[in-house]
């Protein structure tokens, strides 16, 4: 509940900032954007690559021992059920916030294990910072004292975006299937 509230609040803040910014910017104030690198090493700008398409996105990293695999396995099954029931296939993105270790190759193998159609992305520290800001998510490297053996704290859950790339839903970890399907349905009203 607390988490949902935080998502909601950060959403509100983003909207508020958006209103403020919209005096200068022609684009819709709460349109979310990712400009990152895909598994083929190509630039991936969500506003171009997924133009007009709803999608879901989750943030994590492949060294993530528990939360990410749990979320991705769950998401793959939820998307499957959603596709069967609605006839709509949603694009799914996994954004690695650990570009130092998550090479495009590693990411491609990793997401394919869960969902052959999932797209994995990562980017420079600056690009990831921008992406996190746009989606109101948090990530922070921890335990860096053991060299390459660090962990990364990050926002959990799956974000749902509509065709205008507005954040319309959040699927919490371990949400009941019906709740998850209801969130996904908001992507294509």
């Amino acid at each position: 509940m607390k988490r949902a509230l935080v998502w909601a609040l950060s959403g509100l803040m983003a909207v508020a900032l958006g209103f403020w910014g919209s005096q200068w910017l022609p684009s819709p104030h709460n349109q979310r954007q990712l400009v990152l690198t895909d598994m083929d090493g190509q630039v991936f700008d969500s506003l171009e690559r997924l133009k007009g398409e709803p999608y879901v996105v989750t943030f994590g990293y492949t060294y993530c021992p528990d939360v990410c695999p749990t979320t991705l396995a769950y998401l793959a099954q939820v998307l499957d059920v959603y596709e069967t029931q609605s006839g709509t296939k949603l694009e799914a993105l996994f954004v690695s916030v650990d570009p130092e270790r998550d090479t495009p190759d590693r990411l491609a193998q990793y997401v394919a294990y869960f969902d052959a159609d999932m797209t994995a992305l990562t980017g420079s520290a600056e690009q990831l910072k921008q992406a996190a800001q746009s989606f109101s998510v948090y990530f922070q490297k921890v335990d860096g004292t053991r060299g390459d053996d660090y962990l990364v704290d990050h926002s959990a859950g799956v974000l749902v975006l509509n065709g205008a790339h507005q954040l319309v839903g959040v699927i919490r970890d371990n949400a009941p299937l019906d709740d998850a399907l209801a969130e996904l349905a908001k992507a294509s009203p």
Binding site: R3, V6, P65, D66, V67, D153, H154, A156
Partner: peptide
């Protein structure tokens, strides 16, 4: 779970109370 951010940390201990159960599970 810190306001939606999952922070995974090493534990100094996991206590299983006398006659009790503790479940280790994903998340």
């Amino acid at each position: 779970n810190d306001n939606g951010v999952m922070r995974m940390r090493q534990r100094e201990s996991i206590v299983i109370p006398a006659g009790g159960q503790v479940v280790l599970k994903p998340g």
